[in-house]
C-alpha cells in the first residue's frame, strides 16, 4: 500500500512510500485527498502547479499544501498527478480529479512536522506526513 494511516493523538499521520520520487509525491497526494473524505463526484478537472522549494521535503509539503488549498477553495478532489518536471527543488505538475460537493474532514494544513523525504537508493522513497485537523 503506497500510504497508510498511523495513530496520532489529535490529527492525521500518514506513512507514504514510493518506488520513485514521483510515485511518493503522487501517493502522498492520494493520501491527503483520501483523508479529506470527499463527498459526491462531479465533472473531471485538471489544475497546473509549479513550485520551487529549499529542499525535497519542503517541496513535497508545499506541493501538498498547494493541492489542499486548491481542493478546498474549488471543491475539487485530485487523485492523479502527472509531473512534467520533478527534481529536488522544483516541480511542474498537472493534477487530475473531479469536482466534489464537499469534504467529510476539515484538514487545516499539511505540516512539516515529522516530514523528511528520504530515498533514492534501492529501498525507494518514504516519509511521514502529519495533517492538522
Amino acid at each position: 500500500m503506497p500510504y497508510r494511516r498511523l495513530e496520532h493523538t489529535s490529527d492525521v499521520r500518514l506513512r507514504v512510500t514510493g518506488a520513485t520520487r514521483a510515485a511518493l509525491f503522487r501517493d502522498a497526494l492520494r493520501g491527503v485527498a483520501a483523508a479529506m473524505r470527499p463527498r459526491g463526484r462531479g465533472a473531471a478537472v485538471t489544475r497546473r502547479v509549479r513550485l520551487e522549494a529549499a529542499d525535497g521535503t519542503a517541496l513535497l509539503v508545499d506541493f501538498l499544501s498547494e493541492a489542499l488549498a486548491l481542493m478546498q477553495a474549488r471543491r475539487e478532489s485530485y487523485r492523479e498527478a502527472r509531473f512534467t518536471r520533478l527534481s529536488e527543488r522544483r516541480l511542474e505538475a498537472t493534477l487530475r480529479g473531479t469536482a466534489v460537493e464537499g469534504f467529510g474532514e476539515d484538514i487545516k494544513a499539511v505540516t512539516y512536522h515529522e516530514a523528511r523525504v528520504a530515498g533514492g537508493a534501492a529501498g525507494g522513497w518514504a516519509t511521514n506526513l502529519v495533517l492538522d485537523l
Binding site: K108, A109, V110
Partner: peptide
C-alpha cells in the same frame, strides 16, 4: 476557518525560505 489556515501555511512557507 480556511482563510486563517491558509495564512498560516503561506507564512510558515515564506519564513522557512
Amino acid at each position: 476557518r480556511g482563510l486563517g489556515h491558509q495564512v498560516a501555511t503561506d507564512f510558515i512557507r515564506r519564513m522557512n525560505q
